Simulated scan of single mutants.
Amino acid sequence: MANVTFKGNPITLPATEVKVGDKAPNFSVLANDLSAVTLESSQGQVRLIASVPSIDTGVCDAEVRRFNEAAAQLDNVKLLTVSVDLPFAQKRWCGAAGIENVQTVSDHRDLSFGEAYGVAIKELRLLARAVFVIDSTDTVTYVEYVPEATDHPNYEAAIEAAKQAR
């Protein structure tokens, strides 16, 4: 696993590292209405899944907004943003920010996504910043673990990977 930092400080992530070509691990997170969302919930679709430390911070806010805008270019792609923010806070933030094309989901309950995808920050109980594209057959086609969790991901590369996935 690549070394990842948070505000310049080394962090501990699970030994799990998802790689291009892997079968995407399943997970169980909560939608804003507290219903379960799993990888299987969007089976047969291309998914762009971004994990962020907290949607209510500057870089995370900008990231969700950027992917929300990109959704217009992405036919038949499900966009998810996963954080450990409570579902109620995510719903309030999305309403205030006008986010309609990205589904925010919460991993606060048991870090199911964070552990399965190798982004759970042990020291902070937050998620590291990463982007995954999963095709309609549940194969991982793009992975970016952002080396510094407070930096932006490569939006263009992730969006292009989602466009190319089938």
Rank of each mutant, 00 (worst) to 15 (best):
V46H: 09
P87V: 01
C94E: 09
A62K: 14
V29I: 13
A36Y: 07
F88T: 04
K78D: 11
G98T: 09
K122I: 00
S41A: 01
A36M: 08
Q73R: 14
A96M: 09
A149D: 12
K163Y: 01
S54Y: 12
T141L: 11
V4I: 15
P153V: 04
V84H: 03
Q103L: 13
I49L: 14
K91D: 11
N154S: 12
V46D: 04
T12L: 06
R129N: 05
V102A: 12
V140D: 11
A158G: 12
T38A: 13
T137Q: 15
Q164E: 12
K122M: 04
R109Y: 06
Q45E: 12
W93I: 02
N101V: 05
V59F: 07
P14N: 00
Q45F: 06
V4C: 06
G21K: 09
T139K: 15
P53N: 04
A24R: 08
T137D: 15
S83K: 05
D85F: 02
S112L: 01
L79A: 12
V4W: 04
A31H: 08
A158C: 08
I121Q: 03
G95Y: 02
D85K: 00
T57I: 10
T150F: 06
N154V: 05
A128Y: 02
L127V: 08
S41H: 09
D56S: 11
L39G: 14
A149H: 10
N26T: 15
D151E: 08
L86R: 00
Q90M: 11
T81C: 15
T104N: 08
K7H: 14
H152G: 01
E69A: 15
T38W: 06
A162D: 08
Q90S: 07
Y142A: 09
N26V: 11
L79H: 10
R129H: 06
V4K: 02
Y155H: 10
G8Y: 05
L80I: 14
A128M: 02
T81L: 14
A70C: 11
P53Q: 04
L79M: 05
L30T: 01
V4H: 00
K163Q: 14
D61A: 10
V64Y: 10
V37P: 08
A96F: 04
R47T: 05
D85T: 06
P14K: 03
D151K: 11
A62G: 06
E123W: 00
T5A: 04
D151H: 13
P25L: 10
S54D: 11
A157P: 03
L34S: 03
R129W: 10
Q90C: 04
P25F: 13
L80G: 07
R129M: 09
E148S: 10
V77G: 10
A89P: 00
N3Q: 12
F113D: 04
F67M: 14
V52R: 04
G114W: 00
A149S: 15
A15C: 00
E17H: 05
F132H: 12
A24T: 11
S42G: 11
F88I: 03
D85I: 06
S54N: 09
G95Q: 14
D151F: 10
T139A: 14
D151P: 05
R92G: 02
T150V: 13
T139C: 09
